[in-house]
Design a protein around this nucleic acid. Structure first.
Lengths: 208, 208
DNA sequence: ACAATTAAAAATGTATACATAAAATTAAAG
DNA sequence: CTTTAATTTTATGTATACATTTTTAATTGT
Protein backbone atom coordinates (compact mmCIF):
# COMPACT_ATOMS: atom_id res chain seq x y z
CA UNK A 1 0.00 0.00 0.00
CA UNK A 2 1.60 3.20 -1.19
CA UNK A 3 1.83 6.38 0.82
CA UNK A 4 -0.73 7.92 -1.51
CA UNK A 5 -3.22 5.17 -0.78
CA UNK A 6 -2.51 5.28 2.96
CA UNK A 7 -3.12 8.99 3.27
CA UNK A 8 -6.18 8.88 1.06
CA UNK A 9 -7.63 6.05 3.13
CA UNK A 10 -6.97 7.92 6.35
CA UNK A 11 -8.69 11.00 4.98
CA UNK A 12 -11.66 8.90 3.96
CA UNK A 13 -11.86 7.37 7.41
CA UNK A 14 -11.95 10.77 9.00
CA UNK A 15 -8.63 10.46 10.75
CA UNK A 16 -7.88 14.13 10.09
CA UNK A 17 -10.23 16.80 11.32
CA UNK A 18 -11.81 18.74 8.48
CA UNK A 19 -10.60 22.30 8.12
CA UNK A 20 -7.55 21.74 10.26
CA UNK A 21 -4.30 22.25 8.32
CA UNK A 22 -2.10 19.21 7.71
CA UNK A 23 1.54 19.68 8.65
CA UNK A 24 4.10 18.06 6.41
CA UNK A 25 6.43 17.13 9.26
CA UNK A 26 3.68 15.52 11.29
CA UNK A 27 2.57 13.43 8.35
CA UNK A 28 6.16 12.52 7.55
CA UNK A 29 6.75 11.38 11.13
CA UNK A 30 3.49 9.51 11.31
CA UNK A 31 4.00 7.56 8.10
CA UNK A 32 7.73 7.13 8.72
CA UNK A 33 8.87 8.82 5.55
CA UNK A 34 10.51 12.13 4.72
CA UNK A 35 8.66 15.27 3.71
CA UNK A 36 9.44 14.92 0.00
CA UNK A 37 7.06 12.05 -0.79
CA UNK A 38 4.52 13.66 1.55
CA UNK A 39 4.63 16.83 -0.50
CA UNK A 40 4.15 14.90 -3.72
CA UNK A 41 1.15 13.06 -2.34
CA UNK A 42 -0.42 16.19 -0.89
CA UNK A 43 -0.23 17.95 -4.24
CA UNK A 44 -1.76 14.97 -5.98
CA UNK A 45 -4.57 14.67 -3.45
CA UNK A 46 -5.21 18.37 -3.73
CA UNK A 47 -5.77 17.99 -7.45
CA UNK A 48 -8.26 15.22 -6.83
CA UNK A 49 -10.33 17.18 -4.36
CA UNK A 50 -9.30 15.17 -1.31
CA UNK A 51 -7.53 18.22 0.07
CA UNK A 52 -7.90 21.93 -0.42
CA UNK A 53 -5.58 24.83 0.07
CA UNK A 54 -5.64 26.26 3.57
CA UNK A 55 -4.98 29.95 3.58
CA UNK A 56 -1.93 30.97 1.59
CA UNK A 57 0.02 27.85 2.26
CA UNK A 58 -0.63 24.31 3.38
CA UNK A 59 -3.58 22.03 2.84
CA UNK A 60 -6.53 20.76 4.85
CA UNK A 61 -9.28 18.20 4.57
CA UNK A 62 -12.29 20.02 3.17
CA UNK A 63 -15.66 20.00 4.86
CA UNK A 64 -18.35 17.92 3.24
CA UNK A 65 -20.02 20.31 0.89
CA UNK A 66 -23.44 19.51 -0.59
CA UNK A 67 -22.93 22.26 -3.15
CA UNK A 68 -19.77 20.61 -4.38
CA UNK A 69 -21.61 17.33 -4.82
CA UNK A 70 -24.38 19.12 -6.67
CA UNK A 71 -21.88 20.67 -9.05
CA UNK A 72 -20.00 17.43 -9.61
CA UNK A 73 -23.12 15.47 -10.46
CA UNK A 74 -24.46 18.33 -12.56
CA UNK A 75 -21.31 18.23 -14.67
CA UNK A 76 -21.32 14.47 -14.86
CA UNK A 77 -24.95 14.50 -15.98
CA UNK A 78 -23.94 16.77 -18.86
CA UNK A 79 -20.69 15.13 -19.89
CA UNK A 80 -21.19 11.41 -19.42
CA UNK A 81 -24.20 11.02 -21.71
CA UNK A 82 -22.22 12.96 -24.28
CA UNK A 83 -19.31 10.57 -24.13
CA UNK A 84 -21.57 7.54 -24.07
CA UNK A 85 -23.23 8.80 -27.23
CA UNK A 86 -19.86 9.25 -28.88
CA UNK A 87 -19.11 5.64 -28.07
CA UNK A 88 -22.29 4.31 -29.65
CA UNK A 89 -20.98 3.27 -33.03
CA UNK A 90 -17.94 1.57 -31.59
CA UNK A 91 -19.75 -0.57 -29.06
CA UNK A 92 -19.00 -4.12 -30.10
CA UNK A 93 -20.73 -7.11 -28.63
CA UNK A 94 -17.57 -7.95 -26.76
CA UNK A 95 -17.49 -4.60 -24.98
CA UNK A 96 -21.14 -4.81 -24.01
CA UNK A 97 -20.47 -8.32 -22.79
CA UNK A 98 -17.73 -7.15 -20.53
CA UNK A 99 -19.95 -4.38 -19.19
CA UNK A 100 -22.62 -6.96 -18.44
CA UNK A 101 -20.10 -9.17 -16.65
CA UNK A 102 -19.18 -6.29 -14.37
CA UNK A 103 -22.82 -5.76 -13.44
CA UNK A 104 -23.30 -9.45 -12.77
CA UNK A 105 -20.23 -9.61 -10.57
CA UNK A 106 -21.69 -6.77 -8.52
CA UNK A 107 -24.83 -8.80 -7.91
CA UNK A 108 -23.01 -12.06 -7.34
CA UNK A 109 -20.72 -10.94 -4.59
CA UNK A 110 -22.41 -9.62 -1.49
CA UNK A 111 -20.86 -7.78 1.38
CA UNK A 112 -18.95 -5.41 -0.84
CA UNK A 113 -17.69 -2.21 0.73
CA UNK A 114 -18.88 1.15 -0.46
CA UNK A 115 -15.51 1.68 -2.05
CA UNK A 116 -15.68 -1.59 -3.96
CA UNK A 117 -19.20 -0.93 -5.16
CA UNK A 118 -18.21 2.52 -6.30
CA UNK A 119 -15.25 1.11 -8.13
CA UNK A 120 -17.24 -1.54 -9.98
CA UNK A 121 -19.82 1.10 -10.76
CA UNK A 122 -17.17 3.18 -12.47
CA UNK A 123 -15.67 0.16 -14.21
CA UNK A 124 -19.03 -0.49 -15.82
CA UNK A 125 -19.41 2.98 -17.25
CA UNK A 126 -15.72 3.40 -18.04
CA UNK A 127 -15.82 0.21 -20.05
CA UNK A 128 -18.38 1.85 -22.34
CA UNK A 129 -16.83 5.31 -22.31
CA UNK A 130 -13.43 3.98 -23.28
CA UNK A 131 -14.84 2.66 -26.51
CA UNK A 132 -15.44 6.22 -27.69
CA UNK A 133 -11.68 6.69 -27.97
CA UNK A 134 -11.86 10.27 -26.68
CA UNK A 135 -9.02 10.42 -24.14
CA UNK A 136 -9.49 14.03 -23.08
CA UNK A 137 -13.20 13.75 -22.45
CA UNK A 138 -12.60 10.49 -20.66
CA UNK A 139 -9.86 11.93 -18.48
CA UNK A 140 -11.99 14.85 -17.36
CA UNK A 141 -14.91 12.61 -16.49
CA UNK A 142 -12.60 10.25 -14.67
CA UNK A 143 -11.35 13.16 -12.63
CA UNK A 144 -14.90 14.16 -11.71
CA UNK A 145 -15.43 10.61 -10.51
CA UNK A 146 -12.33 10.80 -8.39
CA UNK A 147 -13.68 13.97 -6.81
CA UNK A 148 -16.94 12.18 -6.09
CA UNK A 149 -15.11 9.29 -4.46
CA UNK A 150 -14.70 11.26 -1.27
CA UNK A 151 -18.47 11.20 -0.83
CA UNK A 152 -19.40 7.70 -1.87
CA UNK A 153 -18.92 6.35 1.62
CA UNK A 154 -22.11 8.24 2.44
CA UNK A 155 -23.99 7.19 -0.64
CA UNK A 156 -23.87 3.51 0.16
CA UNK A 157 -25.23 4.01 3.64
CA UNK A 158 -28.59 4.45 2.03
CA UNK A 159 -28.13 0.89 0.89
CA UNK A 160 -31.49 0.38 -0.67
CA UNK A 161 -30.30 2.65 -3.45
CA UNK A 162 -28.02 -0.09 -4.70
CA UNK A 163 -30.84 -2.15 -6.19
CA UNK A 164 -32.35 0.84 -7.98
CA UNK A 165 -28.95 1.72 -9.36
CA UNK A 166 -28.48 -1.76 -10.73
CA UNK A 167 -31.85 -1.67 -12.48
CA UNK A 168 -30.80 1.56 -14.14
CA UNK A 169 -27.53 0.04 -15.20
CA UNK A 170 -29.26 -2.87 -16.89
CA UNK A 171 -31.73 -0.53 -18.55
CA UNK A 172 -28.85 1.49 -20.01
CA UNK A 173 -27.10 -1.64 -21.17
CA UNK A 174 -30.28 -2.91 -22.81
CA UNK A 175 -30.82 0.39 -24.63
CA UNK A 176 -27.24 0.33 -25.87
CA UNK A 177 -27.64 -3.24 -27.01
CA UNK A 178 -30.65 -2.34 -29.08
CA UNK A 179 -28.92 0.70 -30.52
CA UNK A 180 -31.25 3.21 -28.87
CA UNK A 181 -28.64 5.86 -28.36
CA UNK A 182 -30.77 8.79 -27.27
CA UNK A 183 -32.70 6.65 -24.86
CA UNK A 184 -29.49 5.31 -23.35
CA UNK A 185 -28.19 8.86 -22.96
CA UNK A 186 -31.41 9.97 -21.29
CA UNK A 187 -31.34 7.00 -18.93
CA UNK A 188 -27.74 7.73 -18.05
CA UNK A 189 -28.51 11.37 -17.31
CA UNK A 190 -31.36 10.30 -15.03
CA UNK A 191 -29.13 7.70 -13.42
CA UNK A 192 -26.52 10.29 -12.54
CA UNK A 193 -29.01 12.91 -11.44
CA UNK A 194 -30.76 10.40 -9.19
CA UNK A 195 -27.51 9.38 -7.55
CA UNK A 196 -26.53 13.02 -7.07
CA UNK A 197 -29.91 13.97 -5.65
CA UNK A 198 -29.83 11.10 -3.17
CA UNK A 199 -26.35 12.01 -2.04
CA UNK A 200 -27.13 15.70 -1.65
CA UNK A 201 -30.25 14.94 0.37
CA UNK A 202 -28.29 12.58 2.55
CA UNK A 203 -25.63 15.21 3.20
CA UNK A 204 -28.14 17.93 3.97
CA UNK A 205 -30.20 15.94 6.47
CA UNK A 206 -28.11 14.14 9.11
CA UNK A 207 -25.20 15.40 11.19
CA UNK A 208 -22.27 15.58 8.74
CA UNK B 1 9.03 35.15 -12.83
CA UNK B 2 8.63 31.85 -11.05
CA UNK B 3 10.08 28.56 -12.20
CA UNK B 4 6.57 27.44 -13.03
CA UNK B 5 6.04 30.39 -15.32
CA UNK B 6 9.46 30.02 -16.92
CA UNK B 7 8.99 26.38 -17.81
CA UNK B 8 5.44 26.94 -19.02
CA UNK B 9 6.60 29.80 -21.22
CA UNK B 10 9.40 27.70 -22.66
CA UNK B 11 6.98 24.91 -23.46
CA UNK B 12 4.68 27.39 -25.16
CA UNK B 13 7.55 28.75 -27.21
CA UNK B 14 8.43 25.29 -28.41
CA UNK B 15 11.79 25.15 -26.69
CA UNK B 16 11.28 21.46 -25.91
CA UNK B 17 10.65 19.00 -28.71
CA UNK B 18 7.24 17.40 -28.48
CA UNK B 19 7.27 13.76 -27.52
CA UNK B 20 10.81 13.88 -26.21
CA UNK B 21 11.03 13.14 -22.48
CA UNK B 22 12.11 15.92 -20.15
CA UNK B 23 14.88 15.02 -17.73
CA UNK B 24 14.69 16.46 -14.23
CA UNK B 25 18.44 16.98 -13.93
CA UNK B 26 18.70 18.77 -17.25
CA UNK B 27 15.88 21.10 -16.35
CA UNK B 28 17.36 21.67 -12.90
CA UNK B 29 20.74 22.55 -14.40
CA UNK B 30 19.22 24.75 -17.07
CA UNK B 31 17.11 26.79 -14.67
CA UNK B 32 19.78 26.78 -11.96
CA UNK B 33 17.66 25.14 -9.32
CA UNK B 34 17.58 21.72 -7.71
CA UNK B 35 15.38 18.86 -8.81
CA UNK B 36 12.86 19.31 -6.01
CA UNK B 37 11.15 22.46 -7.34
CA UNK B 38 11.43 21.02 -10.85
CA UNK B 39 9.49 17.95 -9.76
CA UNK B 40 6.81 20.11 -8.19
CA UNK B 41 6.42 22.18 -11.32
CA UNK B 42 6.37 19.16 -13.63
CA UNK B 43 3.58 17.58 -11.64
CA UNK B 44 1.60 20.78 -11.71
CA UNK B 45 2.08 21.26 -15.45
CA UNK B 46 1.09 17.66 -16.02
CA UNK B 47 -2.21 18.31 -14.31
CA UNK B 48 -2.83 21.31 -16.53
CA UNK B 49 -2.22 19.44 -19.75
CA UNK B 50 1.08 21.16 -20.57
CA UNK B 51 2.88 17.87 -20.09
CA UNK B 52 1.88 14.24 -20.33
CA UNK B 53 3.32 11.08 -18.91
CA UNK B 54 5.98 9.51 -21.08
CA UNK B 55 5.99 5.76 -20.81
CA UNK B 56 6.12 4.49 -17.25
CA UNK B 57 8.15 7.34 -15.91
CA UNK B 58 8.95 10.90 -16.81
CA UNK B 59 7.00 13.49 -18.73
CA UNK B 60 7.09 15.00 -22.20
CA UNK B 61 5.55 17.85 -24.13
CA UNK B 62 2.49 16.45 -25.87
CA UNK B 63 1.95 16.75 -29.60
CA UNK B 64 -0.72 19.19 -30.71
CA UNK B 65 -3.83 17.12 -30.85
CA UNK B 66 -6.92 18.37 -32.71
CA UNK B 67 -9.01 15.72 -30.98
CA UNK B 68 -8.00 17.09 -27.59
CA UNK B 69 -9.09 20.56 -28.65
CA UNK B 70 -12.36 19.20 -29.93
CA UNK B 71 -13.03 17.50 -26.60
CA UNK B 72 -12.06 20.55 -24.57
CA UNK B 73 -14.35 22.89 -26.48
CA UNK B 74 -17.11 20.30 -26.51
CA UNK B 75 -17.00 20.18 -22.73
CA UNK B 76 -16.78 23.93 -22.42
CA UNK B 77 -19.77 24.34 -24.71
CA UNK B 78 -21.76 22.13 -22.36
CA UNK B 79 -20.57 23.47 -19.02
CA UNK B 80 -20.08 27.19 -19.49
CA UNK B 81 -23.62 28.03 -20.59
CA UNK B 82 -24.77 26.03 -17.61
CA UNK B 83 -22.73 28.08 -15.19
CA UNK B 84 -23.67 31.33 -16.90
CA UNK B 85 -27.32 30.42 -16.48
CA UNK B 86 -26.77 29.71 -12.81
CA UNK B 87 -25.28 33.17 -12.47
CA UNK B 88 -28.27 34.91 -14.05
CA UNK B 89 -30.14 35.99 -10.96
CA UNK B 90 -27.05 37.27 -9.24
CA UNK B 91 -25.82 39.46 -12.06
CA UNK B 92 -25.83 42.96 -10.64
CA UNK B 93 -25.33 46.04 -12.76
CA UNK B 94 -21.93 46.42 -11.21
CA UNK B 95 -20.78 43.00 -12.38
CA UNK B 96 -22.06 43.54 -15.89
CA UNK B 97 -20.30 46.91 -15.86
CA UNK B 98 -17.02 45.31 -15.00
CA UNK B 99 -17.52 42.74 -17.74
CA UNK B 100 -18.16 45.55 -20.21
CA UNK B 101 -15.02 47.36 -19.08
CA UNK B 102 -12.95 44.29 -19.83
CA UNK B 103 -14.36 44.10 -23.34
CA UNK B 104 -13.69 47.79 -23.92
CA UNK B 105 -10.12 47.48 -22.69
CA UNK B 106 -9.59 44.71 -25.22
CA UNK B 107 -10.70 47.02 -27.99
CA UNK B 108 -8.85 50.04 -26.69
CA UNK B 109 -5.40 48.52 -26.46
CA UNK B 110 -4.00 47.26 -29.71
CA UNK B 111 -0.96 45.08 -30.21
CA UNK B 112 -1.93 42.64 -27.51
CA UNK B 113 -0.27 39.24 -27.58
CA UNK B 114 -2.28 36.10 -28.07
CA UNK B 115 -1.70 35.28 -24.44
CA UNK B 116 -2.99 38.66 -23.29
CA UNK B 117 -6.06 38.46 -25.48
CA UNK B 118 -6.78 34.99 -24.21
CA UNK B 119 -6.41 36.16 -20.67
CA UNK B 120 -8.78 39.12 -21.06
CA UNK B 121 -11.18 36.83 -22.83
CA UNK B 122 -11.25 34.56 -19.82
CA UNK B 123 -11.49 37.50 -17.41
CA UNK B 124 -14.66 38.59 -19.17
CA UNK B 125 -16.40 35.25 -18.85
CA UNK B 126 -14.96 34.49 -15.42
CA UNK B 127 -16.32 37.78 -14.16
CA UNK B 128 -19.81 36.54 -14.99
CA UNK B 129 -19.27 32.94 -13.93
CA UNK B 130 -17.97 33.95 -10.52
CA UNK B 131 -21.26 35.60 -9.73
CA UNK B 132 -22.93 32.19 -9.74
CA UNK B 133 -21.06 31.33 -6.54
CA UNK B 134 -20.50 27.74 -7.63
CA UNK B 135 -16.85 27.13 -6.82
CA UNK B 136 -16.61 23.55 -8.02
CA UNK B 137 -18.20 24.19 -11.38
CA UNK B 138 -16.06 27.27 -11.75
CA UNK B 139 -12.87 25.42 -10.88
CA UNK B 140 -13.50 22.68 -13.42
CA UNK B 141 -14.23 25.17 -16.17
CA UNK B 142 -11.16 27.16 -15.22
CA UNK B 143 -9.11 24.02 -15.57
CA UNK B 144 -10.51 23.37 -19.02
CA UNK B 145 -9.45 26.90 -19.95
CA UNK B 146 -5.97 26.24 -18.68
CA UNK B 147 -5.79 23.17 -20.86
CA UNK B 148 -6.90 25.26 -23.82
CA UNK B 149 -4.19 27.83 -23.12
CA UNK B 150 -1.59 25.65 -24.76
CA UNK B 151 -3.38 26.09 -28.07
CA UNK B 152 -4.41 29.73 -28.02
CA UNK B 153 -1.15 30.83 -29.59
CA UNK B 154 -2.52 29.26 -32.74
CA UNK B 155 -5.98 30.66 -32.42
CA UNK B 156 -4.89 34.25 -32.57
CA UNK B 157 -2.90 33.73 -35.73
CA UNK B 158 -6.18 33.76 -37.50
CA UNK B 159 -6.47 37.31 -36.28
CA UNK B 160 -9.61 38.24 -38.10
CA UNK B 161 -11.40 36.00 -35.66
CA UNK B 162 -10.84 38.53 -32.93
CA UNK B 163 -13.46 40.98 -34.24
CA UNK B 164 -16.08 38.27 -34.62
CA UNK B 165 -15.35 37.10 -31.12
CA UNK B 166 -15.82 40.58 -29.74
CA UNK B 167 -19.19 40.95 -31.46
CA UNK B 168 -20.27 37.71 -29.83
CA UNK B 169 -19.09 38.95 -26.47
CA UNK B 170 -21.16 42.10 -26.73
CA UNK B 171 -24.17 40.11 -27.90
CA UNK B 172 -23.92 37.89 -24.83
CA UNK B 173 -23.52 40.89 -22.56
CA UNK B 174 -26.54 42.55 -24.11
CA UNK B 175 -28.67 39.44 -23.69
CA UNK B 176 -27.63 39.18 -20.04
CA UNK B 177 -28.39 42.84 -19.49
CA UNK B 178 -31.91 42.35 -20.78
CA UNK B 179 -32.42 39.23 -18.74
CA UNK B 180 -32.68 36.92 -21.72
CA UNK B 181 -31.03 33.99 -20.05
CA UNK B 182 -31.68 31.24 -22.55
CA UNK B 183 -30.62 33.44 -25.40
CA UNK B 184 -27.39 34.34 -23.60
CA UNK B 185 -26.71 30.67 -22.98
CA UNK B 186 -27.30 29.81 -26.62
CA UNK B 187 -25.05 32.64 -27.77
CA UNK B 188 -22.34 31.47 -25.40
CA UNK B 189 -22.56 27.91 -26.66
CA UNK B 190 -22.24 29.15 -30.23
CA UNK B 191 -19.39 31.40 -29.22
CA UNK B 192 -17.44 28.50 -27.77
CA UNK B 193 -18.24 26.11 -30.57
CA UNK B 194 -17.16 28.66 -33.16
CA UNK B 195 -13.85 29.24 -31.42
CA UNK B 196 -13.30 25.50 -31.10
CA UNK B 197 -14.17 24.84 -34.72
CA UNK B 198 -11.82 27.55 -35.93
CA UNK B 199 -9.00 26.22 -33.82
CA UNK B 200 -9.52 22.62 -34.87
CA UNK B 201 -9.57 23.59 -38.55
CA UNK B 202 -6.46 25.61 -38.06
CA UNK B 203 -4.67 22.70 -36.44
CA UNK B 204 -5.78 20.22 -39.09
CA UNK B 205 -4.71 22.30 -42.10
CA UNK B 206 -1.19 23.74 -41.83
CA UNK B 207 2.04 22.03 -40.83
CA UNK B 208 1.80 21.60 -37.04
C1' DA C 1 -4.77 48.56 28.50
C1' DC C 2 -4.17 48.55 23.59
C1' DA C 3 -1.59 49.07 19.44
C1' DA C 4 2.27 48.49 16.80
C1' DT C 5 6.71 46.86 16.08
C1' DT C 6 10.12 43.51 16.67
C1' DA C 7 11.92 39.12 17.97
C1' DA C 8 11.21 34.07 18.26
C1' DA C 9 9.01 29.87 16.50
C1' DA C 10 7.35 26.91 13.35
C1' DA C 11 6.25 25.53 8.86
C1' DT C 12 7.21 25.33 4.09
C1' DG C 13 10.63 25.86 0.12
C1' DT C 14 15.04 24.34 -1.67
C1' DA C 15 19.63 22.12 -2.06
C1' DT C 16 22.72 18.22 -1.61
C1' DA C 17 23.45 13.38 -1.02
C1' DC C 18 22.05 8.69 -1.16
C1' DA C 19 18.88 4.61 -2.60
C1' DT C 20 16.24 2.31 -5.85
C1' DA C 21 14.36 1.14 -10.07
C1' DA C 22 14.27 1.65 -15.33
C1' DA C 23 16.83 1.59 -19.44
C1' DA C 24 20.61 0.55 -22.19
C1' DT C 25 24.64 -1.78 -23.27
C1' DT C 26 27.48 -5.56 -23.29
C1' DA C 27 28.42 -10.41 -22.81
C1' DA C 28 27.20 -15.04 -23.34
C1' DA C 29 24.66 -18.90 -25.18
C1' DG C 30 21.89 -21.02 -28.62
C1' DC D 1 23.73 -13.90 -36.30
C1' DT D 2 19.97 -13.55 -33.17
C1' DT D 3 18.21 -13.82 -28.70
C1' DT D 4 18.54 -13.73 -23.91
C1' DA D 5 20.65 -12.79 -19.59
C1' DA D 6 23.61 -10.08 -16.79
C1' DT D 7 25.87 -5.80 -15.86
C1' DT D 8 26.51 -1.11 -16.18
C1' DT D 9 24.56 3.22 -16.70
C1' DT D 10 21.11 6.67 -16.11
C1' DA D 11 17.07 8.69 -14.27
C1' DT D 12 13.90 9.06 -10.74
C1' DG D 13 12.48 8.31 -5.70
C1' DT D 14 13.67 9.47 -1.00
C1' DA D 15 16.23 11.16 3.08
C1' DT D 16 18.75 14.67 5.53
C1' DA D 17 20.24 19.36 6.02
C1' DC D 18 19.78 24.20 5.21
C1' DA D 19 17.21 28.70 3.75
C1' DT D 20 13.30 31.44 3.54
C1' DT D 21 8.94 32.80 4.64
C1' DT D 22 4.99 33.04 7.49
C1' DT D 23 2.89 32.99 11.76
C1' DT D 24 2.89 33.54 16.62
C1' DA D 25 4.45 35.61 20.76
C1' DA D 26 6.54 39.12 23.29
C1' DT D 27 8.03 43.60 24.23
C1' DT D 28 7.83 48.39 24.05
C1' DG D 29 5.77 52.81 23.40
C1' DT D 30 1.70 55.73 23.56
Amino acid sequence: MSLYEKIKADIQQGRFAAGQPLKQVELADFYRVSRIPVRDVLQKLKNEGWLIRHGKRGVAVPQFDPLEVEDLYLMRARLEPLLQSLALEKLSGEILGRARDILLSMEARSGLSAEQIGNLNWQFHACIYRAAARPTLFATIEQLHRQCERYIGYQSRSLHYQSTSQEEHFAILEALHQGHGEQAAALLAQHIEAAGQLLVNHLRQPQP
